[in-house]
Design a protein around this nucleic acid. Structure first.
Lengths: 342, 342
DNA sequence: TTGTAGGCGTTATCAC
DNA sequence: GTGATAACGCCTACAA
């Protein structure tokens, strides 16, 4: 039963090999009930083994309209997304789905291509944890009726279920912690407010100051385009250029561990030490943040859970339900980068 | 021309909408020559716009046996793989291919699932930059005649084209650099030799010692299972437990930046300072390594190029050629973590 | 319990 | 230049 070339083994080959019809083979393949005898089942299963048959998801999908593939959109394959992805994958696998990652590399036209590929390949669902650079793209997905869930990003479409952490609450808590240490000149540093959930983090920061009876000081706000993306050097340069202003703070609350790490380096370059001269709080709770010196005080996001819950939402939508938005709790982890002001 | 439900717009709809046959529509779609008039072309193009038609890659793939999808296998979505992926993607896109990432999360059964999904979904090529935990899996791919290329991993199958850096050469150079600084007690730390290309790195280390007239000292070798994977805590613990032995070295060459960073922290915990007490050289050249203190002396791998060349090899195989193995040059980047012994 | 046949959305081989 | 029509590999009524 050798095919001349390397032609795929199909359901037809199994049928010929066993003497059954393709219909029966298909039934066994799909285990879809009891419409075959034990013997038939065994014989066909054996043939599948013998011939190393691999079902053709493409042909199947064409017929069934289901591919059992989920797409995960991230901006960059960084450590931050690893555990989110792990959570997604575990939950997906359990339900019989596979998940493929699409990275936009912060590029608009790449995002376009990814969306187009997802559409063409009929993914059954899309989990987005990447800034959508072009809103049109998301409309394409929903207009094709593909279930979409957003993780920790702001998108002003109420129909799309979202999952995020309690950014405002935890940010407030972090800043209050700084206040409790005795800090009065507390800065805020991060990407532009429209990125991710930076706006909520900023509101948490403001709220904490307000509730603490502190005035809001524009001088202490370091929100800048240069912090966007993955260009470490650009962030570093920007900090160096603004070091004099930054030095006026005794503590800074930052929207990511990455920027926090860069800041600490820049301060050191300028002859300042963390936390002796300035305290620093990051955001994300990356593993690496525990192993640098000083280790970071940071906000740990429950990444695995964010992923698995997001996938759970997708499954709900696939099953016709309408999931509620979810807000998970984050945790303030105290490291070595914060101390009372001198 | 509204379909009752959200049915996909098909080539048939376009045909009906324009009055042409599906055959003609297909021709225009594929731009496959000049077998239609300008007018036909325009009309059909317009209809595609009007109806927001998205070609169905699934149906197309069923017929053509080509999906124009490439799979990239990584063990974990870390920063290290970002640029490799970027290189792959750029080259793939240029040739009209999309690439999806599959992460095994260091899990054998997940790897199994990924391979199975890739097979079922008929990916046109697979780029592997993940340890293959089960060799059977790779055989599945080649027995299905799917082009495979390996990046920076050791796999004992001569038929599979591989791309890597000159591990031996650059490792030797790094260790010689330590010797030039005056170090005599130089250690080697990393994952078991069968991981990735650790064996070549170890050979480079040994060779440098040998050529320098140094004896090889088993006491200075810290190769251990605990350095495998992404468990920072486990690596840290292992180092702490062996700190007395490690202290006997005045310099250590390490197989990854990640372990190097953890080592520096552990040494600090033990009251030792890098590079004052011990010099450290990492491997990979991650961005973050420049922004910790001390910044790492490390070996920079040309990640983007590794990716784009790997994709180039896949394209060659698809076109029927047999690509040669490639060895790229890496670069020793001097940071703050190395100094003469005290 | 099993087989026949039509169709999923395309492409490709024929005719016209 | 354009239009029927048969595949591609699978699923699924409908028959038997």
């Amino acid at each position: 039963m050798k095919n001349n070339k390397n032609a795929r083994v199909t359901i037809k080959d199994i049928a010929k090999y066993t003497g059954y019809s393709i219909a029966t083979v298909s039934r066994v393949l799909n285990d879809s009930g009891v419409f075959y005898s034990q013997e038939t089942f065994k014989k066909i299963k054996k043939a599948i083994e013998d011939l190393k048959y691999q079902p053709d998801a493409i042909a199947r999908g064409l017929k069934t309209k289901k591919t059992f593939n989920i797409a995960f959109l991230e901006p960059w394959t960084s450590e931050f997304f690893s555990e989110i992805f792990l959570g997604i994958q575990d939950t997906a696998n359990q339900a019989g789905y596979s998940v493929a990652i699409f990275s936009s590399n912060f590029d608009k036209s790449q995002e376009e291509k990814n969306i187009s590929s997802i559409l063409s390949n009929r993914f059954d669902g899309v989990i987005i944890s990447s800034a959508i650079l072009n809103k049109e793209n998301i409309n394409k997905l929903i207009s094709h009726n593909i279930p979409v869930v957003i993780i920790e990003k702001f998108i002003d479409l109420k129909e799309i279920p979202a999952i995020s952490i309690k950014n405002l609450e935890i940010s407030k808590k972090a800043v209050k912690y700084l206040m409790e240490l005795g800090h009065k000149k507390i800065g805020f540093m991060g990407e532009p407010l429209e990125v991710g959930r930076v706006d909520s983090r900023f509101r948490g920061y403001s709220k904490a100051l307000e509730e603490g009876g502190f005035g809001f000081n524009q001088e202490y706000i370091f929100v800048n385009e240069n912090f966007r993306g993955e260009d470490y050097a650009r962030s570093f340069k920007h900090i160096i250029e603004n070091i004099e202003k930054i030095k006026k703070c005794t503590a800074i609350f930052i929207t990511s561990d990455k920027i926090a790490i860069i800041l600490i380096k820049a301060l050191k370059n300028a002859g300042l030490s963390v936390p002796r001269d300035i305290s620093v709080i990051g955001f994300d709770g990356l593993e690496i943040s525990k192993y640098i010196s000083p280790s970071l005080t940071t906000i740990l996001q429950p990444r695995y859970e964010m992923g698995s819950r997001a996938m759970g939402m997708i499954l709900k939508i696939i099953n016709g339900a309408k999931p509620e938005n979810i807000e998970l709790k984050a945790e303030l982890v105290i490291g070595e980068s914060t101390a009372p002001p001198k």
